[in-house]
Every structure is written in structure tokens, then in C-alpha cells.
Design a protein around this nucleic acid. Structure first.
Lengths: 250, 250
DNA sequence: CCGCCTCTTTGACTTATGTTACGGTGCAAG
DNA sequence: CTTGCACCGTAACATAAGTCAAAGAGGCGG
């Protein structure tokens, strides 16, 4: 458990929630004073497994994680990607039993908060509670966009859309910009986000590159003309419910 | 606005929330005493449009509704189906601006509650608040399953899965059973749930029927062997987070 | 520096699903 | 009774995406 002296390990959580509601200084302090333990994971490590009954709600302090399900024939579908500040596991802990897996994508540091403490705080301080609720609602909104992405767009459009989403979210998290960002995912993982095969993901990326819409070096993505990529990806950021001055609307 | 004398128009909402948390009699009364107005819609009527700033959170009193998005090329993706007791619009009203459409599927009666009243109740009575939060989390869980369904299962499996989900949800809502239920959707609408074309939905349904997994007459569905249909649909109901004795686990 | 990973690219081929089109059925309105 | 409309079925054909396989391209440990 943390003492006040380690001074703000939970500040990424404050930053995230402050985007959703106007937190008072006391609200912020109450968040920072939540009890937690820090755990770290190597790439591929399981944070939660389908069927677990997690006792903690986890905040990502650094690194990336992803949620996924395995379907009957062994296929994997990635459901969402999480980054610094994200409340990775409010869903599973509040629902009592996990309905999907959460796995580390990179080296990950996690703050684990007993979910009873989270619930207490939510109802003791309505503003914080609204912010947390709002956060889970935004997650759901992203899920809806993914349903549409996977269900009704072709491969090239889907991957462009995904790259746009990453750009905006990384920028709002302070980890990059819509012009350039790092995203440590393999093409296989990207393909599992979009319901494609790895081969087809490779083809789609190649198509986007040869049209000059993105450049990639290793795991870094550069976007020279955001407008064209957003158009190719049928991307409008409304569903992310962020309003930051820096984000181009199209 | 309602007076106490119209006696329990919001009871479907009580029934729904009572499934998620142990409501006290006072909790139930507080819900029933929420202010509301009733509106009705004909099939196809818009309850909320993408971009609206709804002031109300709506409860479905009767009939069916669906949420959907229109993508760039005009394609439609249905995101979820709603039935009696569902809080159709907590998401959109709490997020301030709607990121998708909600439309009536059949004749619909709706109770519209000012969302400020909902929020106040949620924080005045934590048990009710938890139940509402939980409800939105279950919605998100269903969204995740749909991502996997659309992304990683073939047409026949997808449609079997959808038919299973309807069975379980209608049974828990008291509107049918996993052996037989009514669902007033056209094949075009079913295809928009699954990311298929209407033609292929027709093929998939035909396949399931010719294997003896379902029978359909008009808009009614009969399932003789739940186990076989669930297997064909790769369906396990965990993600619905219902625990009713009547629901076969496989 | 070598060898062994994992990841990516590419090609040839297959297949599930999309497209277009037309005919049938049932229901509702006049 | 007719007409029209919305939905459904189905056939022939087109194509996006999947599959299988093999060969580069890094990166990393020994």
C-alpha cells in the first residue's frame, strides 16, 4: 500500500478523470490517496484472465495493454487497447467475473486498487463518481465504433481508422501526436484489432503507405496529411468524446 | 410528468435494475417516483439522432429499439437491440452528445426521465447508482461480444450466436423463452447486426434451418435443441452476466 | 560473427461473402 | 379484386479477404 510520500503515483488516473469532470483539489487528493499496490508485467503477461474474479481495479501507469477474447475456433479478437492513465479493469472488477482477458502489450506498470475503495470513493465524491462512470461510458462508445469498424468497413479503411484512433488517443494521453507516435504492436496484433488476417493487415498497411497516407519505421507511425488519412479511415473523433484544441476534427 | 397515481409505469426499470443489485423497498420507491413523460414511436421512428444533445434518459416500456451507426459508404451497423426495461439512452444522455442513433424497431412506448434526476438518484442512493452503472457495464460487455462476433466468426456462426443472445435476453426480460420467442426483425436488420449482407443472412438462416437448429415462422423463432444451436453459435452466456436458473449454460 | 528467433512481405490459389437481378409471396389499401 | 409494396429466396457471377507457403529482414544471445 502507498503512503502519501510516494507522491502521486496515481496522477495518470487524475489526469484521465480530470478530462471527464471538473475535479476539485479535494477530489484530486482523494484519488491520490486511494490505497494501491504496484505490479509490473512483461509483454504478454496476463493482467486478468477470462473467468477470473478480480478484487482490484487497475490503472495503467506506463506501457500498453489490450483486452481480448478467444472464440471457438481459436481465433483471437482484440477488443481495445489501453495506455497510460486508463482504468484497465473497472469493467471486470465491477462485474465480479471477467468476461475477457487483459494482457500486457509492452512492459507495463500497474497500480492495483481494491475495487471496494474505488466504489466508496465514487459514491463519497459524486464528481469523481461521475468521472469514473463517464470513463466507462467512453470505453463503451469506443466499443461501438469498433463494432461498426469491423462490421462495415473494408480492410484498408479499418486499418486507417485504427491508426487515426491511436493518434488521437495518444495525443490526449500526452504520449505522441497525430503527426507521429509510437505504438508497439505487431501486425498480427493489429490484425486482431480489425478482424483481419496478418497477411491482409500487411497488404492494407502497404496500400496506405503506397498512397502516402502513413509512413512506418519499426513501430513508429508518421502521418503527413491527417486529413487524407482520416478520410481514408472514415474517421471522425466524436466517439472519443475528447475536446482538445489540438485535435483536428477532420 | 407523472404523479404517483399512475402507479408503476417505471416498474420495468425496477425489474431490470433489481437484477443487478439488491434494491431496498425505498430504492424501488425512489425509482418509481422519478419524474418522467411517456412518448410513443412507430416502427422506424428516431428516438435519438447521432449528434443530438439529449436531455432525457429513456426507459423502454414496451416494444423494441435498436442503436446503429451509418458509416462513410452508407452502410449501416446495428450496435445493439433493446427491449422492455432497458435503459435505452443512459449512454447518450450522460455523454452529453449522442455518438449514434437510436430507432424504434416496433411500436414503442418510452418513459423519458430528465437525466439530471437520474444522476441525482444515482448518487443519493448508492445501491441504485451501482445498479445503473452495472447496467451500462453489461451493455459494454455485450458490445465486446459483438466485436468478437462480427470480427472473428463466420456468417452462420454469427447468426446462430445472435439468435441465442436474443433467446436468453428475452427470457430474462420475461418476453419469451430460449425455446421460442418473437423478434420482429427483418433479415435486413439482422444482417446489419452481424455485418453481413441481407442475401448472406438469408443463406445463413437457411443453413441453420436445414440443419434443424431453428425453425422460423414469420418473426417467431423456435429452438428445439438449445445445446446444438449454442454450439453452432459458439455461444456462452457469461457475457450477459445474468444468473437465472432457467438459462441453460450450454 | 553466427545462428536463431520473431516479424514481415510476397505470390499463387481458394473461399466466404458481396453484388445484381429477378421472381415469389403475403399483406394492406383502395 | 386489383395493385402496390415490403420482404424473402435464389441463381449467376464478382471480389475482398483468407490460406498456405516460402523467402527476406531485422534483432538478440551466445
Amino acid at each position: 500500500m502507498a503512503s502519501l510520500t510516494d507522491n502521486g503515483a496515481l496522477s495518470p488516473m487524475v489526469r484521465k478523470l480530470a478530462a471527464w469532470a471538473a475535479l476539485s483539489p479535494e477530489d484530486e487528493r482523494a484519488i491520490l490517496e486511494l490505497p494501491y499496490t504496484v505490479r509490473s508485467f512483461s509483454p504478454g503477461g496476463y493482467i486478468v484472465r477470462d473467468g477470473d474474479k478480480p478484487q482490484n481495479s487497475c490503472v495503467l501507469l506506463s506501457g500498453f495493454a489490450y483486452r481480448h477474447k478467444i472464440v471457438g475456433d481459436g481465433g483471437r479478437q482484440i477488443l481495445s487497447i489501453h495506455m497510460k492513465g486508463d482504468l484497465v479493469d473497472l469493467h471486470n472488477s465491477l462485474l465480479h467475473t471477467a468476461d475477457h482477458n487483459v494482457q500486457a502489450l509492452s512492459q507495463v506498470e500497474l497500480a492495483c486498487i481494491p475495487h471496494e475503495a474505488v466504489k466508496e470513493l465514487a459514491f463519497a465524491r459524486p464528481t469523481v463518481g461521475v468521472a469514473m462512470w463517464y470513463d466507462t461510458l467512453v470505453d463503451a462508445s469506443i466499443h461501438r465504433e469498433w463494432i461498426a469498424n469491423v462490421g462495415r468497413r473494408d480492410g484498408r479503411t479499418r486499418t486507417a481508422h485504427l491508426l487515426c484512433e491511436f493518434g488521437v488517443r495518444l495525443e490526449t494521453a500526452g504520449l505522441g501526436s497525430t503527426r507521429e507516435y509510437d505504438m508497439p504492436m505487431t501486425q498480427e496484433q493489429l490484425s486482431d484489432c480489425t478482424g483481419l488476417t496478418p497477411v491482409h493487415m500487411s497488404r492494407s498497411l502497404k496500400a496506405l503507405e503506397s498512397e502516402g497516407l502513413v509512413r512506418r519505421t519499426k513501430r513508429a507511425v508518421s502521418i503527413d496529411d491527417w486529413g487524407r488519412l482520416a478520410e481514408a479511415g472514415d474517421f471522425r473523433p466524436d466517439y472519443l468524446h475528447v475536446t482538445m484544441p489540438g485535435i483536428p476534427l477532420l
